[in-house]
Design a protein around this nucleic acid. Structure first.
Lengths: 220, 220, 220, 220
DNA sequence: GATGAATGAGATTTCATTCAT
DNA sequence: AATGAATGAAATCTCATTCAT
């Protein structure tokens, strides 16, 4: 098949998978349903993705892509602003991204669990092809650090333009920012319509507080 | 069976489950293996835990218990210190706890995903009993906020003894601390023996930085 | 399970399989249908027979058993008769057996093709377990020569009692008898309700002729 | 395509199919492999043969053709001999043919099973075209009795030239000869490199014995 | 309560056959 | 006609959960 056509079809399948996963989550979703949603047979589905895990990896890749896109867009929207403003804006975008895309944020977190297990040799015990050899797994590996690097770059721009204090370890602060977002997302997810909310905390103020932390830590 | 005996056996099963899960993670582990590790049959296993999810819930409960124990121990060890010192010590204990007990930290995070799904009605579609009716689920619900409350209490002690600035929202700052720990843990887990580590960041300094953030935000 | 119970259930499944195969033949029959006919699930079916081929092997075994039974019964019914009479009666029983049990006669023939392929290394290319390691395959191997031996024994009795001429190679004549039966069966099967019958031959007389051949070759 | 060219290509495909079937047998062979061996695509393969069964039917036709050729050749080689000699020579050729062409002998036998199933309505349940409408099926039908008729004709010549006793049913004896060949072939095939041979019988003497039977039955 | 067997749901695979270009 | 992709049917397998004794 024309490679571009094949790619298009593959993307269509991933689209369908995302829809289904959005409804039911990865574990509860059935390959049958995904195939049907994509308008193909199970066999075709398998000809594109060797296993359910591989398909999920493609979704994870999408998540990283979407996140990267958001980061680029934010940077672009703030290119006239100081590096500090841009950096904080990135974190804010990240928070919002996770809030709006529960599936994607879970996918990103699952990715981290996954690669931990893979590196420990705990993979699908069935005959299914190893995730670690999947195209998408490798693509994600290539992409996983890009959002971090983009943030670092903006921080460095901030140092140059004087908005961020010099002498800080930009990567360290970037990852520090990530930990807040990741933790925030995880805790938030538990409070949506939750019968036992995490006490009475206004989550918006938590986000605000985190951003304040970041600003305080970075601003000159 | 003698209730106390039964309780002991139940704990033994959970012990075995923890061992198995430590090796393979929740998804990849099989009830067969757990039963075998516990030295019981699958049916017996099911007579104690209605479902795999329920069993996991017991593990989650253990995680919360262990975490609570650590918090109590830290508070006790710092009862002569200021509230600020004690609070920071709690966060540090939390960091260390997660580092040393990957399974437990995952369990705690999974708990949050779980209750999200439960509240959305996405539960095991099979005939299995609902988690939300499981004993352990309710126990966890009762316990889930205790670590937070303990932290809040120490913070309040800090406000009283003058080591922490007054006027802050203690619960908000507590949860803020949690987000950092949770995020840290998640990112760390991915870098253990990882083929594509999260760039070159000294993780110890990340922990230190987070604790500094907390201190700065709280100290008078 | 109580071994005898398990054996009984296994036999029940084979019964069901035979019914289904009688209707549709081996190739066209579905494991689903066989499972249903046996009143069990496919998984149970597979727990008794590792593969469709293995199940067929059990059917083949039944065929050999049934044939052996017929031989024994014939010998018993003719124990007062001469060895010659008994031998001819065996051949006649064999003819009748094949006529009345098309499935079984096909099964026996398929067995011969099968072991040819097995000995040449042409086995199921899928992950399915090898037939050559199946219990039933080995049972059939142990049984396959018994009908021949029984015939030989009757011939030898005939030599002793003077009804059969001495000096002949009994095994050779036994196999010679088999070839006639096998060939007869194969040709007969093609003429049942056939649109293009093998010319106008009265099949009964073919059987008679074959038996006459045998008698002439053996009788003193 | 030029009809003659098309015919040539068709024959090439059948040649390839025969090669593949020789290695793996009909059931285990895959259309993919056959197409590849023939140097065409599967679709082309299907444009020549509507189904795997149809293709097999073409192979079966080849088998009957080859058998017929052998019969003609034998008759020609014995045209100076008596009808009896010629008839026996035909049977011997038949034996040798089966020994040397296992695939063809199986094909001929499978043909008989096939037409039985066809006449019982047990055909490919899939959308595939019915074998009974295939060109080759009809060709085989026209050819299937020719070898028999040729044998009958030689027998009749024998009666006329006095070498064969008159008053016998030639067709009956012809078919009787066939059953011996068919049975012989079937049993032989199982003993090739077989782990559990059919006792210790010198197969050559079996063939000899069968020919003697025939001679005795026919000779004046 | 314990045991071995069975169920049910869904993942994965194979392959003949068909479709679209 | 030729090509690569897709379909549909059925085999096989894994595993949580349940049944029968």
């Amino acid at each position: 098949m024309d490679p571009s056509k094949r790619r298009k079809k593959e993307q269509g399948i991933i689209d369908a998978a995302i829809e289904v996963l959005n409804d039911t989550g990865f574990q509860s979703s059935r390959m049958d349903d995904i195939a049907q949603a994509a308008g193909v047979t199970k066999v075709t589905l398998y000809s594109y993705f060797d296993s359910k895990d591989n398909l999920y990896m493609a979704v994870i890749y999408r998540a990283f892509q979407a996140l990267t896109d958001v980061f680029y867009a934010t940077i672009d929207a703030n290119k006239e602003e100081s590096g500090l403003v841009s950096t904080i804006a990135i974190f804010e975008s990240f928070f919002n991204f996770c809030e709006r895309n529960y599936l994607f944020s879970e996918a990103i977190l699952d990715y981290f669990s996954l690669i931990r297990n893979i590196s420990r040799g705990v993979e699908s015990q069935n005959g299914a092809s190893n995730i670690s050899q999947s195209t998408y797994f490798n693509r994600v590996r290539d992409l996983q650090n890009l959002p971090l690097k983009l943030t670092v770059k903006e921080m460095e721009r901030g140092i140059e333009d004087g908005s961020i204090k010099s002498g800080i370890d930009c990567m360290l602060h970037t990852i520090q920012g990530w930990t807040m977002v990741v933790g925030y997302t995880k805790l938030m997810s538990a409070t949506v319509k939750n019968q036992a909310p995490l006490l009475n905390v206004n989550l918006k103020s938590l986000k605000t507080l985190s951003l304040e932390f970041a600003e305080k830590a970075l601003a000159k």
